[in-house]
Structure formats: C-alpha cells, structure tokens
Amino acid sequence: MNALYTDKIETALKSFIADHPGMQTRDQAIIAILENWFTNHGYLPPQQEGLRPEDLDASNDD
C-alpha cells in the first residue's frame, strides 16, 4: 500500500470516528465498517438487535 492511499484511508477513518460519537478508537471504526460492508454484501447475516443510535431519528418513533 502506498503512502498516499494510506493517508486517504486514515483521513477517512478519522472522519468516520468523528461522525460516530460512540466510536472512540480506530479499531472500533474498522470493525464497524467491516461489519456493515460484510452484512450489506451478504457475507454476514443481518443482526436483529434493532437500529444503531446513529440510524435513529423522529421517523423511527412509534
């Protein structure tokens, strides 16, 4: 992996962490991103634990 690509990934990870208040570490961000990608592409079954906090808004209220 070249330095430019690594810098872009690190910048994206920092932005992801900043956008997800419960996310505190780089490892947590990488795990969340991979779980999301694997689930959305059929490699992991969808979890049945409800919506993540960042996905909640007034439209979810019943």
Rank of each mutant, 00 (worst) to 15 (best):
24 Q>T: 11
46 P>W: 06
28 Q>I: 00
10 E>A: 08
2 N>A: 05
54 E>A: 06
50 G>Q: 03
27 D>G: 07
10 E>N: 13
40 N>I: 15
38 F>N: 09
35 E>T: 13
13 L>S: 03
30 I>L: 05
28 Q>F: 02
7 D>P: 07
29 A>W: 01
5 Y>T: 14
26 R>N: 02
13 L>T: 07
31 I>A: 10
43 Y>I: 09
21 P>S: 12
50 G>P: 03
48 Q>E: 15
50 G>Y: 04
41 H>N: 14
19 D>N: 14
15 S>D: 14
20 H>R: 07
1 M>H: 15
42 G>I: 01
57 D>S: 05
25 T>Q: 00
51 L>N: 08
26 R>G: 00
12 A>D: 07
5 Y>Q: 15
24 Q>N: 15
60 N>T: 09
45 P>C: 09
12 A>C: 07
61 D>F: 15
16 F>R: 02
16 F>L: 03
48 Q>C: 08
9 I>Q: 10
12 A>K: 10
33 I>N: 04
13 L>R: 03
25 T>N: 03
46 P>D: 07
36 N>D: 15
52 R>I: 06
33 I>H: 07
30 I>N: 04
49 E>C: 11
12 A>I: 06
53 P>G: 01
46 P>Q: 09
54 E>T: 04
34 L>Y: 13
11 T>P: 01
3 A>L: 09
40 N>Q: 13
23 M>E: 02
43 Y>L: 15
17 I>A: 01
43 Y>F: 12
7 D>C: 07
43 Y>C: 12
36 N>T: 15
30 I>Y: 00
28 Q>H: 05
47 Q>E: 12
62 D>G: 13
2 N>G: 11
48 Q>N: 12
23 M>I: 01
10 E>V: 02
7 D>N: 10
59 S>P: 02
4 L>N: 15
22 G>D: 10
37 W>P: 04
5 Y>I: 13
12 A>E: 12
59 S>C: 02
32 A>R: 00
49 E>T: 08
9 I>W: 11
9 I>S: 08
15 S>T: 07
8 K>N: 13
32 A>N: 01
2 N>C: 07
28 Q>G: 05
25 T>G: 01
32 A>V: 00
37 W>A: 15
13 L>Q: 02
2 N>P: 02
19 D>Y: 03
3 A>F: 06
43 Y>E: 14
41 H>L: 10
51 L>Y: 12
41 H>Q: 12
24 Q>M: 10
50 G>C: 06
32 A>P: 01
28 Q>L: 04
29 A>F: 01
16 F>P: 00
4 L>I: 12
55 D>R: 08
3 A>P: 10
50 G>T: 04
